[in-house]
C-alpha cells in the first residue's frame, strides 16, 4: 500500500467512525478528490460531511475551528501547505489559543492537513516545508506523515489530544510504499510514535528526521555503510512538536535532517531538547542538516541545489564523524 492510499483509508475510517467529523477543503469532492487525490471517495460516501469550499483558507480554518468549538471534529485540507500562511491567524490566534485562553481547557478536535515539500518543480510558493513556522505555539501540536506510521493511528492520536494539530505531508511520499526500508536495514518501533530504522550492530550515530526525508536519509545510511562503514540508526517521530525523542542508550553523535530551509528550524528545537537532556553524554553538539537559506526554485537543477538530498546527508555525516 502506498502512503497516499494509507492516508485516504485513514480518512475513510475516521469519517466512518466519528459521525461528528467533517472534512473541508478546496476541490475535495469526487470525482476530483483533492489536488493530490487524498480525499478520493470521501464525498461520495459522506456527502453531508465532506465540504468543498471556496478558495478561502482563513474561513475554511475558522469554520473548522467553529465546528470544533461547538463539539464536532474537523479536518481541513490546505491544498498546498504554503497557503496555510493565509490561515495562520485562525490557527494560531484562535484555534490553538482557545484551548487555554478562556481559563479552563476547551477541547478542540481539529486537524489541518498540509501537503508540503519540493522536488516536484512547483516553484517558490508551492514547495515549502513550513514546519518551522508553527513550532512553539501553545496548544498547537505538529505531526508529519511518514512511511512508517499508520495514518489511522496518527489521526486517532491527534484527535485524542483535543487540541489543534497540523499534519505535514511531504508530497514526495504519496507514491512511496508503506513500511519499506532499504536492505540490510530493519524497521521497528523505537518508542511509541517513533519508528526506528537500524542494524543490529552498535550505531556510530543517530539520525532524527521527519517522515518526508526518510528515503533520502535511508539512501545516505546505505551509502555510508557500504562506502564508509559508518553505521547509522534513523529515528522518525510521528509527532514533531512537542518534541519527544528518546535517544537509544550509548548514543554519542546525533544529526537532525529536515527539508525546511536554514534558520529557525525544527531541527534546532530538537537539538535544544537533546542538548538539555543528554549534553554530557554526547561527543559533540547535535548537527543540523537542512535545505539552503533560499526560496525553492522551479528549474530542476536549481531546485536540487537548494533542497537537502541524500548526498548532503552522506557528506555532512561523513565529515562530522571523520573530519
Amino acid at each position: 500500500m502506498r502512503v497516499a492510499e494509507n492516508l485516504n483509508a485513514a480518512l475513510h475510517r475516521a469519517l466512518a467512525e466519528d459521525p461528528d467529523l467533517h472534512l473541508l477543503g478546496e476541490d475535495v469532492l469526487d470525482p476530483y478528490g483533492g489536488a493530490f487525490k487524498i480525499t478520493r471517495g470521501l464525498s461520495d460516501r459522506f456527502p453531508e460531511r465532506v465540504l468543498s469550499t471556496p478558495i478561502s483558507e482563513n474561513a475554511i480554518t475558522g469554520v473548522a475551528a467553529g465546528l470544533a468549538l461547538a463539539g464536532d471534529s474537523a479536518i481541513v485540507e490546505i491544498m498546498f501547505g504554503d497557503f496555510a500562511a493565509l490561515a495562520f491567524d485562525q490557527l494560531v490566534n484562535f484555534a490553538a489559543k482557545s484551548v487555554s485562553m478562556y481559563g479552563s481547557r476547551v477541547p478542540m478536535r481539529l486537524v489541518v492537513r498540509c501537503p508540503v515539500g519540493g522536488g516536484r518543480g512547483y516553484g517558490p510558493t508551492h514547495s515549502q516545508s513550513l514546519q518551522k513556522h508553527f513550532v512553539g505555539v501553545p496548544g498547537l501540536a505538529l505531526y508529519e506523515v511518514s512511511p512508517f506510521h499508520d495514518n489511522a493511528d496518527v489521526l486517532a492520536e491527534m484527535f485524542a489530544r483535543e487540541e489543534p494539530c497540523v499534519l505535514f505531508e511531504d508530497k514526495v511520499l504519496y507514491t512511496r510504499p508503506m513500511y519499506e526500508v532499504a536492505e540490510p536495514f530493519r524497521l521497528d518501533v523505537h518508542t511509541p510514535g517513533v519508528a526506528r530504522v537500524f542494524l543490529d550492530e552498535r550505531p556510530d550515530c543517530v539520525v532524527v528526521a521527519g517522515g518526508g526525508v526518510s528515503h533520502r536519509v535511508m539512501a545516505a545510511m546505505r551509502s555510508l555503510l557500504l562506502e564508509e562503514e559508518i553505521v547509522c540508526t534513523l529515528l522518525v517521530p510521528s509527532r514533531l512538536y512537542p518534541v519527544g525523542i528518546e535517544l537509544p542508550p550509548g548514543t554519542r553523535r546525533v544529526f537532525v535532517v529536515e527539508e525546511g530551509t536554514a534558520g529557525g528550524t525544527w531541527g534546532a528545537e530538537v537539538a535544544h531538547e537533546i542538548h538539555r537532556r543528554h549534553f554530557a553524554d554526547l561527543d559533540g553538539p547535535v548537527t543540523l542538516i537542512h535545505s539552503a537559506d533560499s526560496v525553492i526554485p522551479t528549474a530542476p537543477h536549481l531546485e536540487a541545489a537548494v533542497l537537502v538530498g541524500a548526498d548532503d546527508v552522506h557528506r555532512v555525516i561523513r565529515e562530522t564523524l571523520r573530519g
Binding site: N58, G66, A68, A70, G71, A74, Q90, F94, Y102
Partner: peptide
C-alpha cells in the same frame, strides 16, 4: 482572557478583528 477574551456557555469574545466570523459560520453549521 481579560477584557476581550471571554467564554462562557454559548458566549465567546476574541481580540482579533474579523476572526470570529468564520468561526461563527462553523458554529452555525453545527
Amino acid at each position: 482572557g481579560g477584557s476581550q477574551h471571554i467564554r462562557t456557555e454559548r458566549y465567546l469574545s476574541t481580540g482579533v478583528q474579523g476572526e470570529s466570523l468564520p468561526v461563527a459560520c462553523g458554529v452555525a453549521l453545527r
